[in-house]
Design a protein around this nucleic acid. Structure first.
Lengths: 199, 199
DNA sequence: GTCTATATGCAGATAGAC
DNA sequence: GTCTATCTGCATATAGAC
């Protein structure tokens, strides 16, 4: 029977605490208290704080891949799949306003700490970039697919930063509407362009 | 003779260290070493770490106001002034790639720390928002002035996060070109709109 | 695998000499 | 106004009993 191991519980709690309080500001004691184990027991599972960070990043990579796979399977059209990504801003708006984007803020923090795991954290962002690039490519935007994926990611990261700075929920809603409008505009352009080539 | 006081030196060094290493990760010892004074002397000037943060935020507010005033005086047209803002991304690209945006990353960090100074840090962002709103208003975009200021700020914050995550200098250059294009497009739209009303 | 007890170091902060 | 010496607490990390 695969009950949740202590190791997995540690990773799960550390993931949440790193997101909500930051990596540097989260202590072993915080994680141990959240899991309900002693500090000493901690070192049976992880030799150093950096090892937990590695495990948390690996967990986030796995969960991101699973989420992207779900969106891929559930979305009938590339547009629907891209909308799944955009609507993360709505679904997670309360947490985003309080703590920002989990990926963006981790990358920013590790950059300042000059932490070795910085590159691995950026790979989570890379998963989104590559998946979104695939969606725009499926829409026939071969040349501009990656640039548009990067634009959408950039816009989302900006919304996360600004909404947490100003604590404005309506801002997120307005921006999501604007992003959706942008998406439909470039899809319209693409459709017209293909029509012109065919005729 | 107004030589730079020790207090001012502390604020200046703390400003840099908070930006490059983060507020939480920067210790009194770090600042004292950078200034060249002992830790004990520190407390003659600041009673607590939070007081230094307050002073750093106040300094950043002052310097931001001065910068905006300079842009206001030097730019002949609102478009030129907005371009001054956009080109911050180019001027500071090396530091932005390494440490992100000083304002955005401070807001993000203080949000996670649930720090009381969070609101004051967001006021720096507010200075940019209000100034940019004034520029768009001067372009005749009364209704949409603030939304466009927020869009420009959001985009810039996104570029800062993404360029530091991927460490890509060419990305900043491409985005600045795209932002400039966006600016000229909405100015064109505005000009045509005014023409239509007058004719 | 989990615990208690503990080592070591550095953080923020204070007292008091010069 | 600057220093040295010191306090207290919490951080990461280890040792070893159960």
């Amino acid at each position: 029977m695969p009950t949740v191991s202590t190791r997995e519980k540690i990773i799960e709690k550390a993931d949440t605490l790193f997101y909500e309080g930051g990596f540097e500001a989260t202590s072993f004691a915080d994680i141990a208290a959240a899991v309900g184990i002693s500090r000493g027991n901690f070192y049976h599972h992880f030799k150093a704080k950096d090892e937990i960070l590695d495990a948390v990043i690996a967990r986030r990579m796995d969960r991101t891949r699973m989420m992207l796979d779900t969106w891929q399977a559930e979305g009938a059209q590339p547009r629907d799949r891209i909308l799944s990504f955009i609507h993360l801003l709505i679904t997670n708006r309360t947490r985003i306003m309080a703590f920002g984007c989990p990926v963006g803020t981790l990358c920013s923090e590790l950059a300042k700490l000059e932490h070795g795991a910085q590159h691995r954290a950026a790979q989570i962002m890379g998963l989104f970039r590559d998946w979104l690039t695939g969606q725009f490519r499926a829409l026939g935007m071969d040349q501009q697919a990656e640039a548009r994926a990067m634009h959408l990611l950039t816009w989302s990261q900006g919304v996360a930063v600004m909404s947490s700075a100003f604590r404005d929920e309506t801002f997120i809603e307005r921006e999501v509407a604007a992003i959706t409008q942008w998406l439909d505009d470039i899809i319209d352009d693409q459709t017209r362009h293909e029509g012109r080539i065919c005729s």
